[in-house]
């Protein structure tokens, strides 16, 4: 692990919020690509997911979170027979992106809820710290 400043409550929350942003952006990209078609099975869009990992800071005992990368789902593209489509292949099939809109919406809602929770916790912690500072 590279040398860096010890984790504080603020830096931990910042990183967690960034991770939630990555997750929300991934779900939004999936939603944006729902219904996109391709003429080959390999060319079809596959939904992406953010993978989270814990990073423990032993000095302060805080456990932050980081998004360790994005993975593509291994779902098969939906084959649809549509010979009139300009992207249809020789057999008259097009391949649709296998995006489940409902699950993406749920993912976004869950992420938004956890983001809200983080902001609220940070606000409370900040208020308590300020109170402690102001007391003579």
């Amino acid at each position: 692990m590279p040398e860096r400043t010890p984790m504080t409550l603020f830096s931990m929350t910042t990183r967690a919020m960034s991770a939630q942003m990555v997750r929300m952006n991934a779900a939004t990209s999936n939603l944006a690509n729902a219904g996109s078609v391709s003429s080959t099975e390999e060319g079809a869009y596959r939904p992406i997911r953010a993978v989270f990992a814990t990073e423990l800071d032993r000095a302060s005992g805080l456990a932050g979170v980081t998004s360790s990368g994005l993975v593509r789902a291994e779902t098969a593209a939906t084959k649809r027979y549509d010979p009139g489509h300009p992207l249809a292949n020789a057999d008259g099939n097009v391949f649709e992106a296998p995006v489940d809109e409902t699950s993406e919406m749920v993912e976004i809602m869950e992420s938004a809820r956890q983001y809200q929770n983080l902001v609220q916790a940070l606000q409370t912690a900040k208020q308590l710290m300020l109170e402690t500072l102001r007391s003579q």
């Binding site: 931990m12 997750r23 814990t54 912690a125």
Partner: peptide, 19 residues
């Protein structure tokens, strides 16, 4: 104050698999 950090860590890791 330490406990606040620990609980905030839990909230931050609400979506981390295996946490």
């Amino acid at each position: 104050s330490e406990r606040m950090g620990v609980i905030a860590s839990n909230i931050a890791n609400a979506a981390t698999p295996g946490y």
